[in-house]
Design a protein around this nucleic acid. Structure first.
Lengths: 142, 142
DNA sequence: CTCAAATAGTTGACTTTATCAACCTAATCT
DNA sequence: AGATTAGGTTGATAAAGTCAACTATTTGAG
C-alpha cells in the first residue's frame, strides 16, 4: 500500500463510518451539512465566504447549502455591522445541538481509530502528517 | 487539528495536487478515470465487477465509466472464456501509456509529500495508518 | 438433470453535488 | 465621483452517484 492508497483508505474509512453513525442516529444531514456545521461552529463571525475558503467549494454551492440549512432552522444569519455585504452566520440552538451530537459521534469514531495506539504513536502520526501538509503548503483547510 | 481534520486535509491536499498535475499535463481524464486505470492496471483478468468491489462504487456508474473509457480507446474488453457473463478488461496501448504517465505524476507528488521526512518516519506513518485501518476492519479498498 | 436462485453487466430514470456565468449590492481605491 | 473589487444570490447545466428493472449466464439444491 503506497502513500496515496494509505491516505485515501483512511479518508474513505472515516467517511463510511461517520456516515453510518450519522444515519444510525437519523440526524437527517449529509456530508456537506456536517462540514458546514463544523465550519460555522469553529469560526467566529463566520460568513459564507469564509466557508467557501475553508471548504474549498464553489460559492454557489455554499449559498444553496446555507439556504437549505437556514430553512431547516439550524442556522441564523444577520448582516454584519462592519460590512453590509456580509452575512454573519451562527448556529441556532437546534444547530448547536446537532453539532454537539456530531462532535460526540466523531469522538467515538476517533476512539475506534485510535484503539490500541499509544499516545506517542498518535502524536507521531499528527506530527508527520502536518509535516506532509506543510510540504504542500496546505493550511488548516479541513 | 484533530484526527478527522488531519486525515481529510491529507486526502484533500492529495486530490487537489494530483488534479492540478493531471490538468497541467492535459491528459483529459477525471478522478474516476484515474482510479479506474489504476484498478485495471493492478488487477489481472479485471472485470467490471472487480472494479465495483475495489472502488466501492455503484455498478451502474462503473458500467458507464467503462463504456466511456472504451469509447476513448483506453481500454479493451473481451468476454471471458471461463464465464461468458464476464468481460475481461485490459488497458490498450494508449491506456497503458496514460496510466504510466499517472504513475509518474503520482511518484512526483509522493516525493513532495515525503520531502524532509526520514525513511523511519515514513515507515512509522504507514505502520500507524494500517493499524488504524485494521481497527475499523478495512481492507485494501483503495 | 432441472429449475430456482445468484451473478455479471447494461440501461433508464432520477437525485445529489458541483461548476459557470450573470447579476446585485456594498465597499474600496484612486 | 466613477471604476474596480468583494460578498452573496440565482439560473442553467454538467458531472457524479443511486435505485430499480432487465438480459444472459452460471450455480447449486433437490
Amino acid at each position: 500500500m503506497n502513500l496515496r492508497e494509505t491516505i485515501f483508505a483512511l479518508a474513505q474509512a472515516y467517511r463510511v463510518h461517520i456516515k453510518e453513525a450519522v444515519n444510525a442516529n437519523e440526524l437527517g444531514l449529509n456530508g456537506m451539512h456536517v462540514r458546514c456545521l463544523h465550519a460555522i461552529a469553529n469560526c467566529p463571525q463566520c460568513t459564507a465566504n469564509a466557508i467557501v475558503n475553508q471548504l474549498g467549494k464553489d460559492k454557489a454551492q455554499i449559498a444553496r447549502l446555507i439556504k437549505d440549512m437556514l430553512d431547516k432552522g439550524w442556522l441564523e444569519k444577520h448582516s454584519s455591522e462592519f460590512d453590509k455585504r456580509s452575512q454573519i452566520l451562527s448556529l441556532s440552538s437546534s444547530g448547536t445541538a446537532l453539532q454537539q451530537q456530531l462532535v460526540q459521534l466523531e469522538k467515538q469514531l476517533e476512539q475506534s481509530f485510535e484503539a490500541g495506539l499509544t499516545q506517542q504513536e498518535l502524536d507521531e502520526f499528527r506530527r508527520i502528517s502536518s509535516k506532509m501538509l506543510a510540504n504542500l503548503g496546505e493550511h488548516s483547510w479541513e
